[in-house]
Design a protein around this nucleic acid. Structure first.
Length: 289
DNA sequence: AGGCATGTTACAGG
DNA sequence: ACCTGTAACATGCC
């Protein structure tokens, strides 16, 4: 589920719920995530509090009133459940799985706060991770040191991308998925960006013209911003803050739409699905040249 | 039963 | 040293 917009939505809702609350207890049901959770380090959280939450690419950075940060990546299926004990019902901070009861067995780590709230890290496939990183060594951290610019920042612009793409033999799909080029995009959003930019995913980046590069920049920013505004769209079951079920809307133009008619006016072609580097690519043969 | 899935990274080979 | 593609990780769903 989580690409940049989803992680940003998680960040925004978490910072409204758990900042400045004393951490009372942490239990680990299964610490064998992508990296084994260091129990000693996680016990260091007791009595501390999160003072700020930041996002870099798809990583969440929980800043503590201590000399280290908690670094979290959601992998493919990581999610947080926020639970309000006082109301004796679940209250989710961002999204809520319809099958939560069934999903409960994948609760991996539970953070208990002093006011009887708790935060659950749930991860079906265990590709996510929770790590602790010394503040002084943060920027040189292996996960963060090679990340390219944030797509929504000014540094990610036409000149940057033109220079990056110049002379590279790689195709545009893999290039945009590469976190060193631009950080935070994943398979879903790259499919969408290339559709709206009218570019075939297999095109070599060195052959893209100025207009195409410019379209990639513009559409990336537009699509990501819109998705954040809508509360993260690559999620299946969305519940608003009060736990009411939201309307699920399929917001993608091409992703997952193999065989459906292209949404561009006057184009009657069916959306194709091909595999590029082991990942599904959806595109319109007529509109994406 | 087999194929597929939103992410990252270690590794092999050019 | 750089660039590229592939496999692996764990689990559930169709």
């Amino acid at each position: 589920m989580p690409e940049l917009p989803e992680v940003e939505v998680v960040k925004r809702s978490l910072e409204r719920k758990i900042l400045h609350l004393a951490i009372k207890k942490v239990t680990i049901n299964d610490g064998n995530l992508r990296y084994k959770i260091n129990k000693k380090e996680i016990l260091n959280l007791i009595g501390r509090k999160f003072i700020e939450i930041k996002r870099r690419s798809k990583f969440l950075i929980f800043k503590l009133n201590k000399d280290f940060h908690m670094l979290v990546h959601l992998g493919m299926t990581g999610k947080f459940f926020y639970i309000d004990r006082k109301k004796k019902k679940f209250k989710t901070s961002f999204y809520y799985d319809l099958n939560y009861k069934k999903d409960q067995k994948h609760d991996r780590v539970i953070f208990y706060f002093s006011n009887d709230q708790k935060l659950i890290y749930n991860d079906i496939r265990k590709f996510g991770f929770i790590k602790f990183v010394k503040k002084k060594k943060f920027l040189e951290n292996i996960h963060l040191r090679n990340l390219g610019p944030e797509p929504l920042e000014k540094k990610y612009n036409f000149l940057y991308l033109k220079k990056y793409m110049n002379g590279r033999k790689r195709n545009v799909k893999n290039t945009l998925m590469d976190q060193r080029c631009v950080s935070g995009l994943g398979n879903i959003y790259v499919n969408e960006i290339l559709f709206f930019s009218g570019i075939n995913p297999k095109r070599k980046v060195k052959n893209l013209n100025d207009s195409e590069i410019s379209r990639i920049i513009k559409n990336t920013k537009k699509i990501l911003k819109n998705s954040i505004k809508l509360g993260g769209s690559s999620i299946k079951d969305f519940y608003s803050d009060d736990g009411k079920k939201g309307e699920f809307q399929q917001l993608f133009a091409v992703y997952g739409r193999k065989g459906e008619i292209c949404s561009n006016t006057d184009c009657k072609k069916k959306i194709s699905k091909i595999v590029i580097s082991n990942r599904a690519s959806f595109y319109c043969r007529r509109c994406q040249k």
